[in-house]
Simulated assay, not measured.
Amino acid sequence: MNAPIPPLDILRLADAEAVLANIASQLRIGRVIPYLGPKLTALSAPSVPTSYEALAEFLGTKVALPKRAKGNPWASAQHIESTRHRATVTALLREAFAAPVEPGPLHRYLAALDLPMIVDSWYDGAMRTALARATNWGEVQGITRAGIGEDRWYRFYDANGVETDKAGAERWTTLLYKPHGGIAPAGNFLITDADYVEVLTEIDIQTPIPDIVRDRRTERSFFFIGCRFHDQLLRIYARQIIKRSSGPHYAVVEPETLTKNEHRFLASEEIIPIALPLPRAIEVLTSA
């Protein structure tokens, strides 16, 4: 028998806007870490996939996929890797995200705040582009371990896209964390089922989460915007990234699209849902 769905207090209208204004004030003092998702990229109307479903569709236009893989980007990528080569998967992801994505108002707003950390869960380079005018920042990206022959889970890159190390990263004012990789600067992608099997074997003990991320989340809360958690993989990643941080956490949601599992996830992680259209939420945040 399925467990009952726990109650969830969804903030709406004036209450939602008041909470967003408070989140904006907490962002400005570095108390809140923004966690960005692909729906934020979609607002820039780019020529790249802006959802996991769209990414799966793109892969399906390039390679004939079995029925079980269609609509699932991780299974699609795994099929391509298994029947062709990892290099084919990487080439297709680079093609999918080759078009530059213009940073939106929220990207530029966040880039100007000198935040301790920004988490960007999608593969495009809009947030990196927005940070180009910042004075002291760098990036850490999750990487596939397929074929690299190294015991590494992530790589560091400075503002110029040059690979660096943990010691250099410690000096950055702002850390951009791309847990699933990204098109820029080096085309790192966590995407296949096999990629995530490796990560998930150790993510509960936090090994794939960089030390600097674990340090900077301490005593801070998270704000999810442009994100969905309709797949177990996305929920696991978010849960492990916010582990041992400090609430309250918040998420901009569309209540009518929430699945039962998303509902349970928000409740179990004590993430307060804010029901506002994404453009309005960004307007409130950037003008508060």
Rank of each mutant, 00 (worst) to 15 (best):
G60V: 13
Y196C: 05
A126P: 12
G182Y: 03
W153H: 13
D204W: 14
L13M: 11
L234Q: 13
V48F: 04
P66N: 10
Q141W: 00
D15I: 02
E262R: 04
A91C: 12
P34D: 00
F223K: 12
D114V: 06
V119L: 06
V252S: 15
A132L: 05
P277I: 07
P277R: 11
A75C: 02
A134H: 06
G226D: 08
R264Y: 09
K178Y: 03
G142Q: 13
L36G: 06
R217Q: 04
Y177F: 14
Y52K: 09
A169I: 01
G168M: 05
K166T: 09
A75V: 09
A91I: 03
P255I: 04
V252I: 15
A111W: 01
T257V: 12
L115K: 07
A45R: 13
R217F: 00
S268I: 13
L131I: 09
D204P: 08
L200M: 14
V213E: 03
L92I: 05
I148W: 02
S82W: 04
A194K: 10
T83P: 09
A238R: 07
E202C: 11
T286W: 06
F265S: 02
Q206W: 06
D215Y: 00
G37S: 05
V140L: 01
N22I: 11
H85F: 02
F265L: 05
S121V: 10
R145T: 14
K243D: 11
L8I: 09
G181P: 10
R128F: 06
G71S: 03
E139F: 03
V162G: 02
F224H: 14
T173P: 04
P103I: 10
A186D: 02
G149T: 08
T173N: 11
Y177C: 07
A238F: 00
Y35S: 06
L11C: 01
T61A: 07
V101H: 05
H249F: 03
A194M: 01
K260L: 04
L11I: 05
